[in-house]
Design a protein around this nucleic acid. Structure first.
Lengths: 214, 214
DNA sequence: ACCTGAACACCGTTCAAGT
DNA sequence: ACCTGAACACCGTTCAAGT
């Protein structure tokens, strides 16, 4: 037993992610992290610039979990499905981290490989330049939007609320004014998150296949 | 001059949003808000439950700015364009608030009207139940994803970074490894955010029109 | 080079006390 | 009913000091 290992950036990264997974973003403090790795708070500053870099490390750790089968011969639609779903799964495995991703993703080295792979697949739909940019931003917007926006998920519920509470709140709305909101809340109560995401992705892929590329 | 008015929830809401617009999320503290409206920090607790409700009020204020032309006779595609773009504009007008939206939107009363209107339009594409849910979540994911994810926007840049810094960072990557990332970064440097969003929305609408509804 | 304790300038919020 | 000062238990980070 004893001291678990030398203090490294990698160990801080793993400990910080574990802290966020267990206690949410508010649980990630310099003091809590120091205690978790068995040092004094100020020691952390020898390995990390400050709290902001800690968040960047956590985002990078999550995005680094993106795993996909790289098959350059696959049809472009299949490749887009594969990579987009892999990104969605990585984000969803760490729901508390998701709010940090949009602001930090442009500086995440771990996101570069899957991004380039996704772009390569989208380019094979016949797009380049501005059209490729739009296609890429659309897919990533959908991935993050779905990851962030589960109707019954841990992010949408208030702290300490039951899992289905959000859906119940919608169902309790006045039916004559919000009939459609009530309808989808009912549908959401029996639907699987990954099915929802995949169906949404199919809509976008159908649009990518249909819209004249350039 | 003198004391500006009685302290109300509405005044707190407006002052909180102004604070966030001017100084970012970190600037929204009970103490700063109290000073802005000319009272003691503890006075705020007579009108607001705590800091969390303050954030909810800010999100609601932003979403309440969603303005769209309500035309029940319009073709469903036109209605979807109109409402989705209105949501995107409201969010983008207050970039610092955007990160708060996903977690709080299910409790925002101000979002219910545009949501129901969007659902009504999507229902006219022939969808109901689970298919309607997927269509709705896809459009809102795209809206929030684009609002959050401007490549050169204030959210993606580090604090105090130049506007084009994110794009320059991408362009500085090794060209043999990330040719596509560099390509879209170049495209992003001359593109307009609203054009990008609208083009992405067209992709999704094309998919909605093409995919067999149910 | 790496570690650390004390201290500073902040937070949100509880509590008791005012009008 | 509405307001408020003092105090408590936290933050991130600077600084000076240790090995």
């Amino acid at each position: 037993m004893g001291r678990p290992a030398k203090l490294t950036r990698e160990r801080l990264q793993a400990a910080a992610l574990a802290l966020v997974d267990e206690q949410g973003l508010a649980g990630l403090t310099m003091r809590a992290l120091a205690e978790r790795v068995g040092t004094a708070p100020m020691t952390l500053y020898n390995h990390v610039e400050g709290r902001a870099e800690l968040e960047a490390l956590v985002v990078d750790a999550v995005l680094a979990e993106t795993r996909w089968r790289d098959s350059p011969t696959a049809e472009w639609r299949d490749a887009v499905r594969e990579i987009a779903t892999a990104m969605w799964r990585a984000a969803r495995a760490h729901p508390h981290v998701i709010p940090l991703i949009p602001a930090r993703r442009s500086r995440s080295a771990a996101l570069r490989e899957p991004s380039e792979a996704l772009l390569e697949a989208l380019a094979r739909s016949g797009r380049s330049g501005a059209a490729l940019l739009v296609a890429f931003r659309s897919v990533t917007a959908l991935v993050l939007g779905f990851a962030q926006g589960e109707l019954a998920g841990p992010l949408t519920a208030a702290a300490g609320e039951a899992p289905g509470a959000v859906i119940e709140r919608f169902r309790a709305l006045p039916a004559f004014r919000y009939p459609r909101l009530i309808e989808i809340a009912t549908a959401a109560s029996t639907s699987d998150p990954e099915d929802e995401f995949r169906a949404g992705l199919e809509l976008l892929i159908a649009g990518l296949a249909r819209t004249p590329a350039r």
